[in-house]
Amino acid sequence: MSGKIRVLVGKPGLDGHDRGAKVIARAYRDAGMEVIYTGLHRTPEELARMAVEEDVDVVALSILSGAHGTLIPRFIDCFKKEKATQDLDVLILAGGIIPEEDIPALKEAGVDEVFGPGTSTETIVEFTRSHLKRPVA
């Protein structure tokens, strides 16, 4: 019996474009992972609750609205609060339209990697597999 890597693919905020999120979800699925898709327009609080209840190993947030600087750090704060720990053992990824100069601040806030447009799904899946922060249960 073996565990499965579980991934929450989330769409925070007022952003109605989820083709990218669905392509990523599909790529993770084809890599044998269990993907929980949140649907559109989720608040950081809701995403944090979902990530806890689904006990995911990875959270991948897709955001194209430009609000990443607010929503993603807020998600990480909520997630720590929900998990009652400062020391998250969950890999946190962001993707979408995120300018280069915003990336350091996101990493400072706790994002492990940011993937921009044109990144291949293989790259994302490989990165995810090799950077898990805990052994799969």
């Binding site: 499965k4 979800a25 599909r26 993770y28 699925r29 084809d30 890599a31 044998g32 992972m33 269990e34 993907v35 929980i36 898709y37 949140t38 649907g39 989720r42 608040t43 609080e45 809701e46 609750r49 979902m50 689904e54």
Partner: peptide, 23 residues
């Protein structure tokens, strides 16, 4: 369902979960 080929799955039932009781 899990994929019979890769064992992966897309679990999409949360999409219908309203905002009313998400928290």
């Amino acid at each position: 369902p899990s994929s019979p080929f890769t064992g992966g799955a897309i679990l999409g039932d949360r999409v219908r979960m309203g905002q009313g009781h998400a928290l």
